[in-house]
Design a protein around this nucleic acid. Structure first.
Lengths: 368, 368
DNA sequence: CTGAAAGCGCTTACAG
DNA sequence: CTGAAAGCGCTTACAG
């Protein structure tokens, strides 16, 4: 790959240290303390020096041929453009590289054909396992992977009983509902996101349960299904407004949808939070910086990614993985407020941020 | 990797087709038309059938050992969480997989130590070449790569004369300036982004040149340096307002910074676009969906990524790559408006979007 | 047109 | 404690 002097191999190190390649291999592959089990102290010393002097770096392709392990994992996300998934991947990538693995990512775009193609490409590359961040409600791809014996875990989106690393999205939805109910909102609506994603459906289910506990209803005409982006939020609001009386609050299962919703509300002459309260999801960095800072639910995306890699490692080492579930957190900002001053003119306020229910997200629940 | 029946190898295909592995290799590696040059029609047929029946998939690690080509490319981005870079990577990934390559991405976080570490990790994985999306103004890393003979190209951010795939950021800045000047803004300011990124500095330079052409000034106290995110935009506005008279327009070198800026302006009681016009950069999907839809500069991020892979392929095949430069485009929305009704109350308007200067971004300029 | 051999860089029993 | 050999899956001169 590099021109100039050719990349040093085990053989060149062996020659320089005047030992056999097998000895070099044993020494270099032992952890620092145990090298002396494999060679005399002076031999170890010679080998180590030769290796660093030559700048030896093990060729993983050679190794993988022998060991049938590539130390490669494949990651499939719906789309890296989505901040949430980029962050989950970042967590995976961190954990993987700490453990000597490298991670491939690609986008499935939530498209079945593309998904299949990407899975095969990764398998062709001989990844040791897969982390899927685009699982679906009823997912034939997962069943086929099990049949083929491909090691994999899920992340972010759950599906059936397959093991993975998730946030408790039901609880997140519930937090949103409790917050709105407590502030006095009476007629909340939901911009629900795609029906095939557990992250969307669980949040809605939790939201409904939370409203229910607060004595509030979520009639069908206050739920719109859509995507996860700003356009979806816009379209959602339009649909809600056309279908009858305006809701007094909106829960969007994604910050971007919330932003689009706010834009559309504004166009219809509705002020946030005075006419309509808005709660988003994910606490994207943008949420705090918006013209109307956004109340939202935060979940530990980086930790979800890191834990997902840990689970895959379990699988690769023959252990049975048990799903990890992280707790979400409510972050209160200006897009929601205590109701009952519908008439007063909007007073400019200092922005306020409050974080509720900050259970340590670093110590998730384990479940079997 | 998969359990159950073991992965078929060239040897198993050869056995099934009753020929030597070398024949199988030659046939399977020839393009569809030329297979008959290497074997009799019936042999070709037997081999092909055996391969598909067994589900043979070439093991790239075995191949790479022989050929010293991994068909792997490494991509380093500042951060995948950044929509722009996620999109550039998507383009790279598309082009790579169309050409039989796979792409590794990792984040450098614009941190020198992390950058070095990531480069070495990718090289240790024996990638055939590198695409760097985090080049710096004066970049020692690039010099060292050249010395070591590592094939690489740049994308998105330029540095010196190194070949790469870019947007014309100077021109983009100029478009922003011309737009503001034409609308009658007189005292524009810039939220400039980090000084080490050409994407930031070029946009500012172009902006200055454009103002200049319109007879406008850009005094030092109207430039603030910051990052690329919403917080940076917020902080930028605060700094601008504290340093004297409010500008009547703001050019942010990034949409996210623009969004933060709008939030901060609002907190200071300034309306967009009536008190202050705002222009962003990148035409992020969010831009159109914002409460105040954002005027911004669009550049073809996906094409930039695709072209970058093409350039790297040039390098890998011994051709001299010549940089590709794509034209940006002005997208007019509500965050800028014709000035001179400073007093009137803000009237709600239908959102409007207009795209100016839509030179085909699919046919970029080439330069040597 | 097809086969047999060598070898890419590594690891791992097997000897000693 | 150390070495020699075999072999992982492939490709590529070299023969015929």
């Amino acid at each position: 790959m590099a021109s100039g002097k050719k990349t040093p191999t085990l053989r060149s190190v062996a020659a320089a240290a005047r030992v056999d390649v097998s000895t070099v291999s044993r020494v270099l592959n032992s952890p620092a303390g145990e090298r002396e089990r494999w060679a005399g102290a002076d031999t170890v010393e010679r080998i180590l020096r030769a290796a660093t002097e030559l700048g030896y770096r093990r060729n993983p392709h050679g190794a993988s041929l022998r060991t049938a392990r590539s130390l490669l994992v494949g990651v499939i996300v719906p789309r890296l453009q989505d901040f949430v998934l980029a962050t989950v991947f970042e967590g995976i990538d961190q954990a993987a590289s700490e453990r000597g693995y490298a991670a491939f990512v690609t986008n499935s775009l939530d498209d079945p054909a593309q998904r299949d193609a990407r899975v095969e490409q990764l398998l062709d590359r001989r990844v040791d396992g897969l982390i899927l961040c685009d699982a679906r409600a009823d997912d034939a791809v997962l069943r086929r992977l099990v049949e083929r014996g491909v090691p994999f875990v899920l992340a972010s989106r759950s599906s059936g009983e397959y093991a993975g690393s998730f946030a408790d999205d039901v609880r997140g939805g519930r937090l949103a509902a409790e917050h709105l109910a407590e502030l006095g909102y009476r007629e909340p609506a939901v911009i629900a996101g795609p029906g095939y994603a557990s992250t969307a459906t669980h949040r809605v289910a939790g939201f409904r349960a939370g409203l229910d506990a607060g004595g509030l209803d979520l009639p069908a005409h206050r739920i719109v299904h859509s995507g996860f982006d700003a356009d979806a939020g816009r379209a959602g609001v339009t649909e809600l407004l056309e279908s009858g009386r305006a809701p007094d609050a909106i829960f969007a299962t994604n910050d971007f949808a919330a932003i689009g919703a706010i834009g559309a509300l504004r166009e219809h002459g509705l002020r946030v939070p005075d006419d309509v309260g808005v709660v988003g999801y994910n606490d994207t960095p943008l949420a705090a910086g918006l013209p109307v800072p956004l109340t939202t639910i935060r979940s530990p995306m980086l930790d979800i990614g890191r834990a997902a890699f840990g689970l895959l490692e379990d699988v690769l080492q023959g252990r049975k993985p048990s799903s990890v579930v992280f707790e979400p957190t409510l972050v209160t900002r200006d897009s929601t407020t205590r109701v009952r001053r519908r008439s007063g003119s909007p007073k400019r306020r200092k922005p306020r941020t409050r974080i509720t229910d900050a259970r340590s997200p670093a110590s998730p629940r384990r479940r079997t």
